[in-house]
Nucleic acid binder design. Structure first.
Length: 622
DNA sequence: CTAGGGTTAG
């Protein structure tokens, strides 16, 4: 794009002027429009000079354009100077000036101009108020927002669609969805934008209450004579969860010709994401394959879908295809998505390659990326690299970074290190969240640090006002149970502030099995099966326990109960990649052609481990 | 003939 000097452009106008005369003011407006389009300060200044030359600086149209032009060039102050020299300031001029400051992020000055305007002769109009509502929303101060909105009512401007829409959006941004809905309810006329704010409000507020509202929303919109557009649907899709409404929306898109032919990438991404979240990754893939164009968002959504549904190999293939076929380089988020795949593949190499790539592309300074990297190294067994990323790499550590390190240590049985990291985090004044708490507690549990774990639990409640989640409680039960403190564990379960769930009873059961408390065991199984009558794992576990104590009649009863209920448990399996071939094994599986050799080695390793264990115990007791 | 609202993902 070549730069055209203003003077040359004006000359060109003079040349054409022989054929058709062009007003100097029209020529200047065109110049300014070009300046706005190109964001050229130079062209703006040249036009300004020409305006002064031709004495057009009182022309309201030209001056308005000039102020916009300065604002687009990040010079709202220059606009203010121009504004000051205009004798008759009309409402357009005021609005333009205020808007210029808003666009440059100078919210406070915009408010100051607004109050100056209110004291003057020129009254603020609907345009002024919509702008100020937006600013209040961006500031996030509901007090200011209510003040501005209140002023709209005196003049009846509040009923204007755009003003009301801005007010709704303002309340939403200030965190008051109900004020937003109140405005919506009282609007005499609504349009698509009004509905889009409401939909967004639902999207921001919780999930479950929304589900019932989603289908109603469609009907109500239809009754209002408004059809959902791309924005409406892509805000709606992420909150559908597994409700099945996602499919309803998809079919609506397919049926509406304008929507399906728009081939909007954003909408496609939302669909891919929605189906992935529903666990229907195959459908997601079909949507993905039929998209007309795919950007990095689309590719990442699909990769993420595969990773979160456990199709690691597909994710890796797609990660390569994105770069080879479409020439799209991965960005921060693509890397964060693929990193968990590296840890599942149990190969440190892939993760290290991503780490190296991120450093070359300078993508490694992002907190979320560093956090994923730490997690990946821990999962691949490299405590050392994980620590190195945490300590040496230059990124802003958030509570997730600390939590990753804490649970990483826990994973490897390094309870003391986890505790040390936890208290260091508190020392830095960082608030722990539920994930942190669970990380510390599970670390304590695995390392037998019962007293320490209880201390942490009480610190979280008393000093940080946390309300332990079900998982956190399950960790406590697990910790007490593993240490053999069955009475305390049961006592904890019975005095929990929330209703104990399956995970809590499950933890108690494990402890009972390990320490042979058949009385508590019976109680726990009773509750667990009552809570989750459809979970096959519970029956299998119960039957195994009974088999151990040779209660064959109970075993048979449990097995028939499962059959009657039509429950089947998919057996767990493990696998390993050797020379690009995957070998998988079930429990006591003898199918593999190297079975004999494998079991021989396994026996050898177990006896070695037992010896080490004994040594370890001896060391602890002396 | 000038100015305003909804949002933008993984």
């Amino acid at each position: 794009m070549s730069f055209i000097p203003a003077t040359k452009l004006l000359l060109r106008y003079s040349a054409t002027a022989t054929a058709t005369y062009v007003e100097p003011s029209t020529a200047l407006i065109h110049c300014l429009e070009l300046a706005i389009e190109r964001q050229s300060l130079k062209l703006t200044q040249q036009s300004h000079a020409q305006i002064m030359c031709w004495k057009l600086h009182q022309n309201p149209f030209i001056v308005t354009k000039l102020i916009i032009s300065y604002a687009t060039c990040q010079n709202p102050g220059q606009g203010k100077v121009v504004f000051g020299s205009v004798r008759e300031k009309n409402v357009y001029l005021w609005n333009t000036l205020i808007n210029g400051y808003v666009r440059n992020g100078e919210h406070e000055y915009a408010f100051q101009l607004f109050s100056e305007m209110c004291e003057g002769i020129v009254c603020p109009d609907d345009f002024t108020f919509s702008t100020l509502c937006k600013v209040s929303g961006e500031v996030g101060d509901i007090g200011v927002g209510k003040y501005v909105h209140g002023k709209c009512f005196r003049t009846g401007i509040a009923l204007d669609v755009v003003v009301a829409n801005s007010a709704m959006s303002m309340y939403l941004k200030c965190g008051s969805f109900c004020d937003s809905l109140k405005v919506f309810d009282e609007m005499p006329v609504r349009n698509l934008s009004s509905w889009n704010v409401v939909v967004n409000g639902y999207a921001l507020s919780g999930e479950l209450e929304t589900i019932a509202t989603v289908s109603r929303l469609f009907r109500l919109m239809d009754m209002d004579g408004v059809r959902p557009n791309v924005y409406t649907l892509s805000s709606l899709l992420p909150i559908c969860g597994k409700s099945g409404y996602g499919r309803v929306i998809h079919s609506y898109i397919v049926r509406s010709e304008d929507l399906s032919s728009s081939s909007d990438v954003h909408l496609g991404c939302s669909l891919v994401d929605m189906y992935s979240r529903c666990g229907e990754v195959w459908v997601a893939r079909q949507v993905f394959d039929r998209m007309e164009s795919r950007n990095v968002f689309a590719w990442t959504a699909m990769i993420n879908g595969y990773v979160s549904n456990g199709h690691i190999d597909e994710a890796v293939i797609l990660f390569r295809e994105m770069q080879i076929r479409d020439g799209i380089p991965p960005n921060k988020v693509s890397l964060v998505s693929i990193l968990p795949a590296c840890s599942s593949l149990a190969g440190l190499i892939g993760g290290k390659q991503i780490h190296g790539y991120s450093m070359r592309r300078m993508l490694n300074s992002a907190t979320s990326f560093a956090n994923a990297l730490i997690d990946m190294y821990f999962r691949c067994g490299s405590i050392c690299y994980a620590q190195r990323v945490f300590e040496n790499e230059n990124f802003l550590k958030d509570s997730i970074s600390w939590s990753s390190v804490i649970s990483g240590f826990g994973m490897h049985g390094r309870g003391r290190d986890a505790m040390y990291t936890f208290y260091k985090m508190l020392g830095y004044g960082i608030r722990p969240d539920m994930i942190t708490l669970i990380g510390v507690l599970s670390a304590c549990s695995r390392s037998g640090l019962v007293k320490e774990g209880i201390d942490v639990y009480h610190t979280a409640i008393n000093e940080y006002g946390m309300k332990p989640s079900l998982e956190a409680c399950a960790c406590m039960v697990d910790m007490l149970g593993r240490a053999g403190q069955l009475k305390d564990a049961l006592d904890f379960v019975q005095h929990m502030s929330i209703k104990p769930g399956p995970s809590v009873w499950g933890a108690l059961i494990n402890a009972c099995i390990a320490y042979g408390d058949s009385e508590t065991l019976e109680l726990a199984y009773g509750v667990l099966i009552h809570l989750e009558p459809e979970n096959p794992s519970n029956y299998v576990s119960l039957s195994n326990v009974c088999a151990l104590s040779r209660k064959w009649d109970v075993v048979a009863k449990v097995r028939t109960m499962m059959k009657v209920k039509g429950l089947r448990k998919t057996p767990g399996l493990s696998w390993i990649d050797v020379n690009n071939q995957t070998h998988h094994f079930y429990v006591a599986d003898k199918q593999h052609y190297c079975s004999e050799l494998i079991y021989e080695l396994l026996d050898h390793l177990s006896s070695m481990m037992k010896r080490v264990h004994i040594d370890f115990d001896l060391m602890n007791f002396t």
